[in-house]
Amino acid sequence: MSGNKTIKRSQAGRKRPRLTSPVRRKKPSVIIRLLRHVPGWAWWMGGFSIAGIYIWFFYYFFVSSSALRWQALYGEINYPEGFDIHGIDISHYQGEIDWELLRNQGSIDDCPICFVMIKATEGCTKIDKNFHDNFYQAREYGFTRGAYHYFSTQSSAKAQASHFINTVKLEPGDLPPVLDVEQRPRRQSLDDFQNSVLEWLQVVESHYGVKPILYTYYKFKLDYLNDSVFNQYPYWIAHYYVDSLKYEGDWKFWQHTDAGSLPGIKGPVDFNIYNGSFYDLRQMTIGSQETIGVDAYRTPIESY
């Protein structure tokens, strides 16, 4: 009796196994199955190819001679050799400028600042909030001054030219007006874009009686403004952190860095050089004998 009870208790204490269905594993996708058969050397070749493309992309857009810019993260700015006439270009991004400090202590590569380019307008309605003060102060403190317009893709060239003319009252001794072109509308043909830029230049030239200066960066000039019709305008080229320009045409100004530092200006400022002597720079100004002559100068009108 005791033995049978023991057997029944031991059987009762056992757990019955659960009846479960077999686990079905998902089959790997076709892509994964194919990748499993790729040999190791192919993985290495693919990795090197991707790295090579990345290096080329980085070099082309940031380091090469056709790059727009290369931001100097370490060390000091390299100044172009063989140029003595230096200048800056400014806008509201430089804030309120201490012009007396800039005139008395400001220098670039141990050379005085000879000219100041000042942003005036953008599109057909915008006026740089510091333009009028900067434009007045630059002349009061003895700098050769100029004014530039930032070309917009959102309004017509004629409306933008009219806006610049109504805003900027250039005087004898000022540099010619400047057109800053850095963008092209995606849906506009190259011919239409070039005609639009040319229209602004021609309208402004007709008003002030002097050929405007054309500003753009190196690669943009080669890609979109490389027509001979634009070579008649003084060229101001933006090309950063290169020892020498690769551009083969004529140019007057070179914006060689956007990370300059000067007393009287908070934050970075663009540095430029003029391709010539100070006499050449002054001969380029409105009212000089090599532009239109004092007697032929037409005073800007209030409306266009």
Rank of each mutant, 00 (worst) to 15 (best):
K126W: 04
V229C: 04
E205Q: 09
G82I: 11
F143V: 02
R139S: 03
R16F: 14
D250A: 14
I88C: 07
L34P: 04
Q188I: 00
G46L: 12
Y215P: 07
D128G: 05
S288D: 11
S303I: 13
S206E: 12
T153I: 01
S152R: 00
Y150Q: 07
I265H: 09
R33Y: 13
C124F: 08
P176S: 05
D192W: 01
G267V: 09
G276I: 10
D250W: 14
N4P: 00
Y241C: 15
Y297C: 09
I113P: 01
A296Y: 11
V178Y: 05
G146P: 07
N134K: 05
F57L: 13
S49M: 14
K8E: 14
A238W: 03
R187S: 06
G249T: 10
Y215K: 06
E96D: 06
S206Y: 10
G142K: 10
Q232H: 10
V294H: 14
D133S: 09
G209Y: 09
N166F: 03
Y148D: 04
Q202A: 12
E248D: 08
R9F: 04
L101V: 06
D180Q: 06
P268M: 06
D191N: 13
K158F: 12
W56K: 00
I165Q: 02
P234D: 02
E96N: 04
E171F: 09
I97S: 00
P22H: 08
R18F: 11
Q105C: 03
